[in-house]
């Protein structure tokens, strides 16, 4: 279990992280969100012991993380942290040896992962000759080569196309099913919704949203109604009590209501229309909750 307890990090007069607490259990995928400079990377560095919290503590299986525990942790850094003059095989062996693995074992695992990511032909290629996406794959492999019990992924999907993003997600799910704890940050908020159970949203180092995603969404009063009907008039929708925004999205309208209870008023109006194809009430999206709480678009 990973526990971050009241962690705080100050850089002089600047507070990068403040009163941060969360727990990740085995088999759990945890999302850490926030705008640029919100304190996500600082949090990861505190977990990895690269920087010491000004106050609070980080416990891994009830113990502070020392160099004795790092072999059980996989860490993927936001910026590519590869020695680009090295050959793929050399680099993975080098990083694997720093996880106390034997060379033969590293080679076996490396070949498995290279094949799984469809880059088995790049084993003897220099890193700096690879595309950004493939470099990202190599970096991901170095983070998982030791079959970590705790996997820390700082922006793992940055620079990946949708197909490769899907491959990463599959691998993350595999580790989750094996009981690994996974914490990651991402700019692609859809991923957080699709496979995170718990999350924290940081703003200026402080958690503004925290907890189980379903609970967060259900506690959030605002809802969306998706409507596809002929002859719909935006002004009439806006005039309905409880409606605070109406957005045209492709062939449908998204009507944003203050509370679930206002959907009946909207439905009454829609019933007056001809040819109604869609009327769907859904919880607010995570990105909307994020914008609402943080006050800016998640980017």
């Amino acid at each position: 279990m990973l526990e971050v307890i009241n962690a705080r990090k100050d850089y002089g007069s600047l507070t990068a992280v403040k009163d941060l607490s969360f727990t990740i259990k085995p088999g759990e995928v945890f999302g850490l969100l926030g705008t640029n400079g919100a304190g996500k990377t600082t949090t990861f560095k505190m977990i990895m012991g690269l920087i010491e919290p000004t106050s609070g503590e980080v416990l891994f299986n009830n113990k502070p993380i020392t160099y004795n525990e790092v072999d059980e942790i996989g860490y993927m850094i936001e910026d590519r942290s590869l020695l680009t003059k090295m050959v793929v095989k050399e680099l993975i062996i080098h990083y694997g040896r720093l996880k106390s693995l034997e060379e033969e074992e590293i080679i076996t695992r490396m070949r498995y992962w290279l094949k799984r990511f469809n880059i088995e032909n790049y084993e003897n290629r220099k890193i700096n000759t690879l595309s950004k996406g493939n470099q990202q794959k190599i970096q991901f492999i170095t983070a998982i080569i030791n079959n970590p019990k705790l996997l820390i992924l700082d922006e793992p999907f940055a620079g990946l196309d949708p197909l490769n993003t899907l491959k990463f997600v599959e691998v993350i799910r595999d580790f989750q099913s094996k009981g690994a704890m996974i914490i990651f940050s991402t700019h692609q908020i859809d991923h957080v919704e699709s496979f995170c159970e718990n999350l924290i949203v940081l703003q200026d180092g402080k958690p503004v949203i925290a907890g189980n995603i379903n609970e967060i969404r259900s506690e959030y009063k605002k809802h969306n109604i998706l409507i596809n009907a002929a002859g719909l008039e935006e002004d009439k929708l806006r005039a309905i009590s409880g409606v605070f925004d109406v957005v045209k999205d492709a062939d449908q309208w998204i009507v944003k209501i203050e509370d679930e209870k206002y959907h009946e008023e909207v439905f009454k109006y829609v019933k007056t229309l001809k040819n109604v194809i869609k009327f769907d009430l859904e919880q607010a999206r995570l990105s909307e909750i994020f914008i609402d709480k943080v006050g800016e678009v998640y980017e």
Binding site: Y67, S81, L83
Partner: peptide, 17 residues
């Protein structure tokens, strides 16, 4: 400098003191 400028240093220092 090679390790630091490539950020590989973070991986290294995460594993060795």
């Amino acid at each position: 400098v090679e390790e630091k400028s490539s950020k590989a240093i973070e991986y290294l220092i995460a594993n060795v003191s």
